[in-house]
Amino acid sequence: MNVKRRGRPAGASVRKKSKGKAVGSGGQRRAALEGKGPTPKAEDRVYHPAYKAKQLRERAAANRRNRTQQTGSRRPAINDTEIVTGRNSVLEAMRTKVPATTLYVAARAEFDERMREIIGIANGRDIPVLEIMRSEMDRMAGRDTVHQGVLLKVAPYEYKHPADLLQRAFDSCETPLLALLDGVTDPRNLGAVIRSVAAFGGHGVIVPQRRSAGVTAAAWKTSAGAAARCPVAMATNLTRTIKDLKAAGVFVVGLDGDGEVPLPGLELADRPLAVVVGSEGAGLSRLVAEQCDAIVSIPISAATESLNAGIAASIAFYEVAKLRAEAA
């Protein structure tokens, strides 16, 4: 009897035989036992302060690239090349290791102990020493300047970005501590603040691009060399920078004589902290004060009207360093 095989219905699928050994669930169980892999870096964890700092750095880098594309130049500096004149001033600048590029000595200038020490330091630091005519030195220094036969050319300071200072603290696994200056125009006050920040474990100083002292030779000398190890950053907009720091988990406090929070025993001392110091006369500007998490006052005698920026910063950073040491 002939049996006629029926064809496969249209659209029917054919089950293919598996090749090789079937894989069971052992691999999945083994993967489960191995865990989820290494712990992500702090900067890759969304809720970690380092992640916010990373975002701040990336945003700053993008802004720098945009500015470079638009202007074709580097970040603007507060001061251009500076000339230091006079034997005492030049000698002090050399002793405090101000980053000089060239030393100029007038032809046939009289040499004394100061001049010999100046040239000795310059030779030791490989700073070029050039002899020029006195008429040329008069032109460089300005007709009304007494240069005493010696000039020192100081290179423009290379400012950091505020995000770089925050990253410096995270890289050292330390709680960030920064100083921000609001309207401080005296470079000696800036130098004093730099010295205090370096002395009490701070991670840098932030100055606004406008209406502020820059890191000039005067600031270098007042810092007593601390400017070589305590970086200074430039903020295009101080209010915007404060907002960025707060978004990165930093608490911002302003110093003001009328502040409601006393500095002694400051509760925020052990947190990531930025201290804003205003000018002696005007104090904190309104916009900056509004962005601060707290306005802190330093108790002083009623006979004293106010403290200058350098002294106020020294007291504040000492108190913060003391409270952090007690809490450690």
Rank of each mutant, 00 (worst) to 15 (best):
V105G: 02
G265V: 10
A248D: 00
D112K: 10
E319I: 06
P128K: 03
L245Y: 15
A235D: 07
S13M: 12
A122P: 01
S25E: 01
F317C: 12
C173D: 06
T145I: 15
R116Y: 12
N2D: 13
D270N: 14
Q148I: 06
A163L: 04
G124C: 04
G310D: 05
G249R: 00
A274I: 09
R95P: 00
D80K: 14
Y159G: 04
N2S: 13
A218E: 15
R240T: 12
K36L: 12
N123K: 11
P9W: 07
Q167K: 13
G183Q: 00
A60S: 15
S135I: 08
M140P: 00
A309H: 03
D164H: 06
K246Q: 15
R324Q: 06
Y51P: 00
A224L: 14
A313Q: 10
A224I: 14
E326W: 09
G254V: 03
V105Q: 06
A107S: 14
G278P: 08
S73P: 00
A192L: 05
L273W: 07
E174R: 08
V261F: 03
S223L: 10
A219M: 07
P299K: 03
A302W: 02
E260S: 06
V275W: 09
P156Q: 13
V98G: 09
A213G: 13
T241I: 03
T236G: 14
L323T: 14
C230T: 12
G26T: 04
A10W: 07
H48C: 01
G281S: 13
R271M: 04
T68H: 12
A62Q: 11
A192G: 12
V3I: 12
D112Y: 06
G27A: 11
A32C: 02
V252Q: 01
P208W: 07
A309L: 02
K17F: 11
V184R: 01
R116K: 11
R30I: 06
A122L: 07
G27K: 09
A163W: 04
F111D: 15
T102L: 13
L266D: 02
R5N: 05
P272E: 13
D144R: 15
Q167V: 02
K41F: 15
N237Q: 09
G225L: 08
E260Q: 09
R64K: 08
